[in-house]
Nucleic acid binder design. Structure first.
Lengths: 142, 142
DNA sequence: TCTAAATGTTCTAGCTGCTAGAGGTTCAAG
DNA sequence: CTTGAACCTCTAGCAGCTAGAACATTTAGA
């Protein structure tokens, strides 16, 4: 049986984060000692590893909740898990496209900066005048 | 003189967002009508456009605060604005690298999914067993 | 001039995914 | 039996907004 601290170490998760996952129902309520401390078994190690791995792949917690659900029901169709992953892939590709446009614009901004004072700073000028931009970069919230 | 709504329309900003910017000191407190409604002039249109444009380029609000500061002082060195932009470029490139690794992994996951039921779903399997991953993808918070 | 709709106001709370701190309790080694 | 590390709960905070409640003002038409 593991304490919350050891579970955290084993899975690379902060203690607070584990409690948070429990709070939002992503991790089950574990058994407790008489004194009220949490104790975990192998199942919980697996579950938390799964969650962490999915997080590393950028899946939002709600998607992970669905994936865990699917994982808990081995007789359901693989199709759903597949489509969640595809959705995530799309998100990643979308963000990449946006970042690519941003990078282009930022590079151009910096490249054209010749030093001197801010009165004729290219960086500030570009920010002031959107019409100088070549790409569509609506990255807010990207 | 513009109402907050018209300013919002002109700059593509939600009304609440403008008030939020005022609250955190990014936008100045504007003049008010006798009844207490905000009224804006051209300066504010420029300033808000600047902010929005920088947000579209992914600059965090604190960086934008610095950029606005620089923009307000035309005799200061351009160097600072340049280094803020370079910092932002680095962030963007870092995020792109991470996303690239994610995309690789997600594609592999999906590609190997053959349909069937979740018991032998590749997507879930990969999530369960980190050792199957080829790339380092520590994207949490990316 | 009156009225009604549109837009404005403040205040509070919520979103994601944690993270940190206060103030107190339990556990395990020595 | 003591001590100190690790645990407990609870609350609040981060970015960057967004939404809603409950009320006031403005403006255009009748």
């Amino acid at each position: 049986m593991l304490t919350i601290g050891s579970l955290g170490k084993k899975t690379g998760t902060k203690v607070q984060t584990i409690r948070y996952y429990e709070q939002i129902g992503l991790m089950p309520e574990p058994g407790r000692t008489e004194g009220g401390q949490r104790r975990y078994g192998d199942d919980e190690v697996d579950r938390l590893s799964f969650i962490r791995h999915a997080r590393q792949l950028g899946f939002p917690l709600e998607a992970i909740r669905e994936l865990l659900d699917l994982s808990d029901n081995p007789d359901r169709s693989c199709h759903e898990a597949d489509s969640i992953a595809r959705r995530q892939l799309k998100q990643v590709e979308l963000r990449m496209d946006r970042l690519k446009a941003l990078r282009t614009e930022l590079k151009r901004m910096i490249h054209e900066c010749s030093g001197g004072n801010t009165a004729d700073c290219k960086v500030l000028e570009v920010l002031r005048d959107h019409s100088e931009c070549l790409t569509d970069h609506d990255a807010i919230g990207a």
